[in-house]
Nucleic acid binder design. Structure first.
Length: 578
RNA sequence: GGUCCGGUAGUGUAGCGGUUAGCAUAUCUGCCUGUCACGCAGAAGGUCGCGGGUUCAAAUCCCGUCCGGACCGCCA
């Protein structure tokens, strides 16, 4: 290899040495007689000077942006008057320039990549990934993987790979299906998570397992959701809930320290699901700022304001002074998130003006006392069915965060646990009970007697989510290891023994051969890296992501296939009828 | 499936009923020996996403459609 150093590894100690560098031309400044080049590789950038009388000049004159070049020259301090500080005090005086490859004019200027339409960046992802910002993200990701591996290996975790071609199981999301050529009419499914396999590994005695697992869910995309994504999947045997959480805290703190240099205070705060919902309207509250809800249901029960009088819940948040336009926008957000409307009041002296003020004269003093609303401040109310009322106000809370930049005053990263999720959730659409986490989640032992009673909605799950800056970056649970409890769980969600056997027969069998108590968690690894890097989209930390519609704009996947390929797997495509 | 926002030279944008469709940057040519977003002079580059409608006249207004993004539903 001719290259003597990566550009970013040059130091003042190299001064006076002859170096050979290879990279891309970032920029060319041609002063006529004198040419300056910026040469870039993924480690850094250096200025190259080419004198007109040097042997390098003719080749340097051919170089354009993004050409690949090899530069041999002397690394040296710049003239006194030209120093910029740090490594910009040094440059390479070229003695030889070799054009290793030419490049077409790029479809966008790499240095302006931040402001280029994302579909263009995705179509030319190989150019986009040349940008230092993107390289920083992918390197951060790589370092996080290294930190995880190092820590878990030290803690005795065994890395095991589980299959990508597996059995379709109703985990919640739609499966990606893969037709089987050797078994016509039958399908593999890509894993939504390695859940059952990792529990098998606990039954098999591996005690502590981890895997960076690719997972697939055929659902609509979002800024923080891709159809194929990476989970850091972990499972431990002979543990209880506190053991899992403290192990995770150690790991997460290690990863932050090694990658961002940030020290996360441990243990992480814990918040019960009901508190998260009641105070912040979300099971993944952004706790970099407070802005809690106040419950005022009781103040309006049976009162003259009809929208509140019969409401299951009336919640209020104390916002700064808002314009009508801002209130209208917040109401739009509230409605989009399930509220019937967004009632408001403006504090004026000992009472209120605007909005619903004529209905609250009797409650004014109590509202001021409970909410602590300041003069001129705005109270925003949602009312109705509890879950919708808190959820909608939760969305308003986040909109207020964005409007007033509330998170900026808090810590850069706030991480916490949300715990005590309900085990079961009533699904209005189907009129049945369903699992909230997944059907293998262990219920709290004190709540076991509630199965099958009219209070089964109160059963607490031994489940936990990791919440970072308002993003769910991990979730897990203690699992059921007692077949009798597993049977109760299936019964509660309306799974007959036969159905359970059909879907998870192998797992039901395995449970009966000596299953240790166990539990685990999975991190949404892409999402975690997104938050750590400060990116606003998961696509910024995935090398080759898909767009909103699940399309890879570079490779142009998905795409039709040859008829012969379909015939091989015994499929034909039905013509769509509009 | 739904709501909202957007689509104008390669890229980023202005124009919002009558413009030769403007600006910046990139590209190309010429000049230039200390630039560092180099500078100066010039050139080329546009089916204003597509289709239809309204109008004497449409990039501009209306309808449809396609594409991109954010969100709801869905999804841990």
């Amino acid at each position: 290899m001719k290259r003597t150093a990566m550009i970013g590894h040059l130091t003042p100690a190299h001064a006076g040495q002859t170096v050979t560098l290879q990279g891309w031309v970032n920029r060319r400044r041609d002063l006529g007689g004198l040419i300056f080049l910026e040469l870039r590789d993924r480690s850094g950038l250096v200025q190259v000077q080419v004198e007109p009388d040097s042997a390098a000049f003719a080749d340097a004159d051919r170089l354009r942006a993004e050409y690949v070049a090899e530069i041999e020259g002397t690394y040296q301090a710049r003239p006194e008057s030209q120093r910029k500080g740090g490594l910009a005090d040094f440059e390479v005086i070229a003695t030889r320039v070799k054009v290793l490859n030419t490049a077409k004019t790029t479809p966008f200027e790499l240095e302006k990549g931040d402001s280029v339409a994302e579909d263009i960046r995705l179509k030319f992802r190989y150019l986009d990934l040349r940008r230092p910002e993107m390289q920083r993200n992918l390197v951060l990701r790589s370092k996080a993987v290294a930190a995880v591996t190092e820590y878990l290996d030290r803690e005795g975790f065994v890395q095991v790979e589980t299959p990508m071609l597996t059995k379709s199981t109703p985990e919640g999301a739609r499966d990606f299906l893969v037709p089987s050529r050797q078994n016509p009419g039958e399908f593999y499914a890509l894993p939504q998570s390695p859940q059952l396999f990792k529990q098998m590994l606990m039954i098999a005695g591996y005690d502590r397992y981890y895997q960076l697992a690719r997972c697939f869910r055929d659902e609509d995309l979002r800024a923080d959701r891709q159809p194929d994504f990476t989970q850091l999947d972990m499972e431990m045997s002979f543990v209880e809930l506190d053991d899992v959480l403290s192990t995770q805290e150690g790991l997460m703190a290690h990863v932050f320290r090694e990658t961002t240099g940030v020290d996360l205070p441990v243990p992480f705060p814990r918040m019960a699901y009901m508190d998260a919902m009641n105070f912040y309207g979300s099971d993944k509250p952004d706790l970099r700022f407070d802005l809690k809800f106040t419950d005022v249901t009781d103040l309006f029960q049976g009162g003259e304001f009809k929208a509140f009088a019969a409401a299951q819940a009336v919640k209020v948040i104390a916002a700064p002074e808002l314009t009508r336009k801002q209130i209208d926008e917040l109401e739009r957000i509230a409605k989009q998130n399930g509220a019937g409307g967004l009632a408001w009041l403006k504090r004026d002296g000992d009472g209120f003006t605007g909005g619903i003020s004529k209905f609250v004269t009797a409650q004014a003093a109590e509202l001021i006392a409970r909410t602590g609303i300041e003069q001129g401040g705005t109270l925003l109310f949602t009312a109705g069915e509890w879950k919708k009322a808190v959820g909608a106000l939760g969305a308003v809370r986040l909109a207020l965060r964005d409007l007033f930049d509330l998170a900026a005053a808090g810590p850069q990263f706030h991480i916490s646990w949300v715990t005590e999720f309900p085990q079961l959730e009533f699904d209005d659409d189907s009129g049945t009970w369903t699992y909230m986490h997944h059907p293998f989640t262990a219920p709290h032992p004190d709540d076991l007697d509630l199965f099958g009673t009219d209070r089964q909605g109160e059963i607490r799950a031994q489940a936990y989510d990791l919440v970072l800056n308002g993003f769910e970056v991990g979730g897990g649970s203690i699992r059921i290891h007692d077949p009798a409890v597993q049977a109760k769980m299936f019964q509660a969600i309306g799974f007959s023994a036969d159905q359970a056997r059909d879907k998870f027969g192998f797992f039901m069998d395995a449970l009966e051969y000596g299953t240790p108590p166990h539990g685990g968690i999975a991190w949404g690894f892409d999402r975690l890296i997104m938050v750590m890097s400060g990116a606003t989209s998961i696509r910024e930390v995935i090398a080759f992501p898909k767009n909103n519609r699940g399309v890879d704009l570079m490779a142009l996947a998905p795409s039709p296939v040859e008829p012969g390929q379909l015939a091989d797997v015994g499929l034909s495509v039905a013509t769509s009828e509009n």
